[in-house]
Design a protein around this nucleic acid. Structure first.
Lengths: 339, 339
DNA sequence: AACCATTGTCGAAGCGCTTCGAAAGTGGAC
DNA sequence: GTCCACTTTCGAAGCGCTTCGACAATGGTT
């Protein structure tokens, strides 16, 4: 195991010179620096994480907590965790994974043992217990998502309100007057991330503001296709669909429409809002304002690292503007046979 | 920040006594131990990870590497990573997440900087570059999956051969004579985990051994339902289906059968092999020999921790016997109208 | 009474690195 | 030649913990 001392000897300089040459924290003559770097490479030197952390008071590790409910989709979780991990590497940080019942205790342990320099909180619920904990911990924490009580927290999230408004606006502009939002199941609304509720509220408000008809349906946890069928049965006049739901339900929309001879976009315009694309699956064939991990996670990590390094003042909610992905699923409304 | 020294002072003993009392590595009188524990609790003491690692030469962290191909299902990855993380916690280890292009460099870095005490390798490909790397690293590594060249490696995996044989046997016993395996797409076969190929080979061999007719279909990457339709068109005599495929394709099997009036299990018996259940989604309504992370990951972590602690000798491939989950999708063959 | 083994505790030496203060060297201004 | 400011390098003090060897106290043997 090659240590800094070996490098110092090899380069014919002192230990501290090696440290400064490699970290660049003090001026070292160009020639010496080169000798040190060469020696380090020759020996394959890499500073031991533990020693570096102990002396430097920085572990270069961030923790990620993501509670994995039985009824949430792991695919999205992984996409977020991955995005954070990848972003962290850009800053030369590694990522510790905190999951399940370990969320709270894990955060506490991580902070107390100085295992990590900071924590990224994923899959934030409206009344997330981690919010209160984060306030107590003397450890930088960034939330990807916005808990209801976010006083004193640092949060970053997609601007769901704006995404929803733009979705409604797109449909309205195309002449649609009767819209429906396919939302999440009651269980998710109750417990999980609070954005589905934010979307619902914004949807209703935006529709009302423009004098549009708007209804909301929530699929039951166990059914997927049923909800769309039921909606179309009950309200055959709907010509614009906003989707903010589980991917299974979204997947079922196309077939359900097809089954009753409705084409997209000729007979039905569809826009998805806040849905996370799933790598490895077909992307939804609909216009979308996706909740892409790439939108929030790298920014969250930047923030966290900034706080860790003292460059950034913690606190505040930051909303990322939505990105519109056109897929040709919105078209001007036109008459159609209602059956 | 409370240190061991604070605890020592509070308990009125020396630093080393605190260390021994808390670790139990040397005999400490019951009374002293109690005093130390009380003091530690009173102060909320937790040993700093870095100091512990530096002095103790053990970080209590394991790394998990899982390459995330664009075309693989993240859900399964997350399930495995989670299973490892949870199992690691049982041993008082935390988990570092290594992903993407960082797989190899990450492993190297982790080993060289002693960031982690060991590494769990997930989603193992047949010719996995991490195999060679693992042999070079002076760091305990356990593979969940079996690379073709596994010389000198420690591997653990589901016994796919046996699972496949049992699946075929179940169908054969029920009188089925014409079977089909719905396998993975060519791309997955080529590149990803090698088990789909192992399943295909075993399927053919087992069928041959019993004089059964056997065919294999591989869905194209972009189509899901098509493959089953095509199969049934071409071979209407098939009465037993073995599924070892993407979940989308598996999901499409039921509807496809339904569409041609075939009921499970009356008209078609179905068994899934090596498919990972996805939390949050409906489980497949078929008899199954699942590739459950719970089958392999906890065992892999046990192994790894054993190696780290010197209790276990590394090396060898360990196959976990499959577990049969009955869901009533296998029934005796019977005549049916072929259309 | 002298001896030994056992038990419980302590002191101190590191683990490998960062960082502070100081020393040594250099060159220009006076 | 002296002084100062600057650059470059070094030595040493920790960071908070584990662990080894030593020491003191105890009690049983001879």
């Amino acid at each position: 195991m090659v240590t800094i001392e070996d490098v110092a000897r090899e380069a014919g300089v002192s230990i501290s010179t090696v440290s400064y040459a490699l970290s660049g924290k003090r001026a070292i003559s160009e020639e010496t620096r080169r000798r040190v770097v060469a020696a380090a490479e020759r020996l394959g030197y890499m500073p031991k994480a533990a020693a570096r952390a102990l002396a430097g008071k920085r572990t270069h590790v961030i923790a990620v907590t993501t509670p994995l409910h039985a009824d949430t989709d792991h695919s999205a979780h992984m996409a977020f965790a991955m995005a954070v991990t990848t972003a962290a590497r850009e800053h030369d940080f590694d990522t510790l994974l905190l999951v399940q019942d370990d969320e709270l205790e894990g955060m506490r342990r991580t902070a107390a043992t100085l295992l990590a320099d900071g924590i990224v909180v994923l899959d934030v619920a409206a009344d997330d217990a981690r919010a209160e904990l984060a306030r107590q911990l003397r450890c930088p924490v960034v939330f990807v998502g916005v808990p209801t009580d976010n006083e004193g927290l640092t949060c970053i999230d997609l601007d769901f309100e704006r995404a929803t408004e733009e979705a409604v606006e797109a449909l309205r502009t195309a002449g649609h007057r009767s819209l429906a939002l396919v939302s999440q199941g009651q269980d998710v609304i109750d417990r999980a991330s609070n954005y589905p509720l934010r979307i619902e509220r914004t949807f209703v408000a935006a529709a009302e503001r423009h004098g549009l008809e708007a209804r909301i349906v929530r699929p039951r946890p166990d059914t997927s296709t049923g909800v769309v069928e039921a909606l179309l049965d009950e309200h055959p006049d709907v010509t614009g669909l906003v989707l903010s739901t589980r991917s299974e339900v979204a997947d079922a929309v196309g077939p359900a429409l097809e089954r009753r001879g409705l084409r997209v976009p000729e007979d039905m315009s569809v826009v998805a809002v806040g849905m996370t694309p799933e790598p490895g699956r077909q992307p939804l064939p609909f216009d979308s304002f996706p909740l892409d991990p790439q939108l929030t996670c790298p920014a969250a990590v930047d923030l966290l690292v900034g706080i860790i390094e003292g460059r950034v003042v913690p606190g505040g909610v930051q909303l990322v503007p939505p990105v519109h992905q056109a897929r040709g699923s919105v078209a001007p409304v036109r008459m159609r046979d209602v059956r």
